[in-house]
Simulated assay, not measured.
Amino acid sequence: MLRSYLPLLIFLVLSTGVGAFFVMANTLLGPRFKRRPTTVHEDAYESGLPSDVQQGFRFGISFYLIAMLFLLFDIEVVFLYPIAVELKQFGTFALVETAVFIVLLFVALIYVWRRGALEWK
């Protein structure tokens, strides 16, 4: 039984060792800055540009709706891929369930489309 866990144990030991090595190398070889934090250091900085978003900024609901729709259709692809690969093995029941799933997602798409969630404002 222990033999089946041996590759996992070796992987854990090696990954922990590599992580510890990089932390120690960074501590020993990395630069040591002793600056006091200023407003420039505390400002948000993203992708090489200062952020225009202020602290109290709130995203609009359309941003969240688009994100949820992306997740919805991304999950659809994740569920449909295994069924498409092994459809003969799953049989007719899986085909019917997949069709119901796609119809429900299509109804949801029509609903959010009519509600205006796909229009970026």
Score class of each variant (00 low, 15 high):
38 T>Y: 01
57 F>C: 04
99 A>D: 05
42 E>M: 09
61 I>G: 04
71 L>Y: 02
104 L>V: 06
23 V>F: 09
67 A>C: 01
73 F>H: 08
5 Y>P: 00
50 P>T: 00
9 L>P: 00
72 L>D: 07
49 L>C: 03
85 V>R: 15
14 L>K: 06
27 T>S: 10
103 V>N: 01
14 L>C: 10
112 V>L: 10
30 G>T: 02
24 M>Y: 12
23 V>K: 13
114 R>A: 09
43 D>R: 15
73 F>L: 04
78 V>L: 12
21 F>K: 11
29 L>F: 06
74 D>Q: 10
64 Y>K: 01
97 E>Q: 11
25 A>E: 00
58 R>S: 07
42 E>Q: 10
119 E>G: 01
26 N>H: 02
37 P>D: 08
2 L>H: 05
39 T>E: 15
5 Y>D: 02
90 F>D: 03
6 L>F: 08
2 L>D: 11
76 E>H: 12
109 L>P: 02
101 F>I: 00
97 E>A: 13
112 V>G: 01
100 V>C: 07
41 H>T: 11
104 L>N: 11
41 H>C: 00
46 E>P: 00
119 E>K: 13
87 L>F: 09
81 Y>R: 08
49 L>G: 01
60 G>L: 04
55 Q>V: 03
10 I>G: 07
25 A>K: 10
57 F>W: 15
108 A>D: 02
109 L>R: 02
83 I>Y: 14
33 F>D: 11
39 T>N: 13
64 Y>L: 03
93 F>G: 11
8 L>C: 04
4 S>A: 12
16 T>E: 08
102 I>A: 11
32 R>T: 08
52 D>K: 10
37 P>M: 06
70 F>R: 10
12 L>M: 04
87 L>Y: 05
45 Y>S: 05
108 A>C: 12
110 I>S: 13
66 I>T: 10
43 D>I: 00
106 F>S: 14
118 L>K: 01
52 D>L: 10
42 E>K: 07
7 P>K: 06
76 E>T: 04
95 L>V: 09
54 Q>W: 06
114 R>V: 04
66 I>W: 09
23 V>T: 09
101 F>K: 01
78 V>H: 05
61 I>H: 05
28 L>I: 14
101 F>H: 08
25 A>V: 00
5 Y>F: 14
62 S>H: 13
14 L>P: 02
52 D>F: 03
31 P>K: 09
34 K>Q: 09
96 V>C: 03
67 A>T: 04
35 R>S: 11
44 A>F: 04
36 R>T: 12
11 F>E: 12
111 Y>H: 07
22 F>K: 14
53 V>Q: 12
51 S>K: 08
3 R>Q: 05
119 E>F: 00
109 L>A: 14
83 I>S: 10
70 F>K: 10
80 L>K: 03
27 T>R: 15
97 E>T: 04
25 A>G: 01
32 R>Q: 13
56 G>T: 06
12 L>W: 02
70 F>Q: 07
116 G>Y: 07
71 L>R: 04
95 L>E: 12
104 L>C: 13
13 V>D: 07
35 R>W: 01
8 L>I: 09
81 Y>P: 00
4 S>D: 06
38 T>I: 02
92 T>S: 11
48 G>T: 03
90 F>R: 12
89 Q>A: 07
